[in-house]
Computed example of a mutant assay.
Amino acid sequence: MLINCVAYQNGKKLADIPHTDISEYVQQPGCFVWVALRDPSAEELEEMRKEFGLHELAVEDVTKGHQLPKIEEYGDTLFVVLHLLEMDDAGKINIGEVGVFVGPNYVLSVRSHSGINFLNVRERCEREPHLLKFGAGFVLYALMDAVIDRYIPIIQTLEIELEQVEAKIFSGGTTTRASIEEMYGLKRKLMLVQHSVTPLLEAVSRLYGGRVPQVCLDLQEYYRDIFDHLERISRTIDGLRDILSTAIQVNLSMISLNESAVTKKLAAWAALFAVPTMIAGIYGMNFENMPELKWTLGYPLTLFLMGILDFALWWRFRCAGWL
């Protein structure tokens, strides 16, 4: 589905144009066309492939989807795949994709499986004609910057979730199974974000250092800024994963401590019952030559002895923290 098709020249918008007129504008000096598609049909992609001379392998990647984030060069054209991350009200992270084809005189963005739009990116570019005059390279920067900036609120939300999980661990406000499931769910979310960030680190570094692609010339500092954002996000994810791993170990340790405390209590109560049971068992043997059997004070003294011994054991366990 065609969302936008706009022609720009020397940093200024010329007009919204029909896709059938693209070839007329891309031939003009200093002019480039920015086309945006969402969940396009095979026919639409084939039309764009012929219009811009896109590489078949790149078009195939967009058609199939489910690609890792990457940046590939095909002659003087760049093909960029980015993950679009959205967190819904239930806290689930949904993953969409955008494939961006960038040439000297065109930008084609193909968005799939995502409700995120780039209208604000287009508005930003049009508000900055002094940068938009750099052409398709600046549009690619603006798109990448907008996508990566959306990762930051997700990371902040995951930080808050981690703090809440840590609070529950030490307050005992959740069951063991629930806390473990919550922590592993959080770990999975962090991995999803990391899989969207890590592949881009090396790829983006090629856009500002070494042999820079032609469409990115004069914009190296902007792409270096994107790399810095990615690096900060990656370090934050690594830190959160380390904290989460520690939290999981602490939770397991607290489970072991709780089980140990229960075992101690059970052992203490078993000892309290064992002493009178042992004494009663001795006098329950009914041997004829047991001297205490005929003694008038034997029964009350035996009960008194049971009570004294149990009280002594109870006091000892109490002081030791077993009861």
Rank of each mutant, 00 (worst) to 15 (best):
C5K: 01
N10Y: 14
K13L: 09
P29G: 00
G30V: 03
G30W: 04
W34T: 03
V35S: 02
L37C: 02
D39S: 04
D39P: 05
S41Q: 06
M48R: 01
K50D: 15
E51K: 09
G53R: 04
G53Q: 02
L54I: 02
D61F: 00
T63M: 13
K64Y: 13
P69Q: 05
P69F: 00
E73S: 15
D76S: 03
F79E: 05
L82I: 08
E86K: 10
D88V: 11
G91I: 02
N94T: 13
S112V: 12
V121Q: 07
P129L: 00
H130A: 11
K133N: 15
F138S: 04
L140C: 06
L143S: 05
L143C: 06
V147F: 07
L158N: 00
E159F: 11
E159N: 13
E159P: 08
E161V: 05
L162C: 08
L162A: 13
E166P: 05
T175Y: 01
T176N: 07
T176C: 06
R177H: 13
L186E: 03
Q194L: 11
Q194A: 12
Q194Y: 15
P199F: 06
P199Y: 02
L200G: 04
A203D: 11
L207C: 12
R211Q: 15
V212N: 09
D218N: 15
E221W: 15
R224S: 15
H229V: 10
I233K: 01
S234C: 05
R235T: 10
D238P: 07
L240W: 06
A247I: 03
Q249D: 14
V250Q: 02
I255K: 01
L257G: 10
T263P: 07
A268G: 01
A270M: 02
A271D: 07
F273C: 14
A274P: 02
V275W: 06
P276G: 06
P276K: 06
Y283L: 04
G284C: 03
G298C: 08
G298M: 01
T302N: 01
T302G: 06
L305V: 11
G307L: 14
I308T: 10
L309F: 12
W315Y: 13
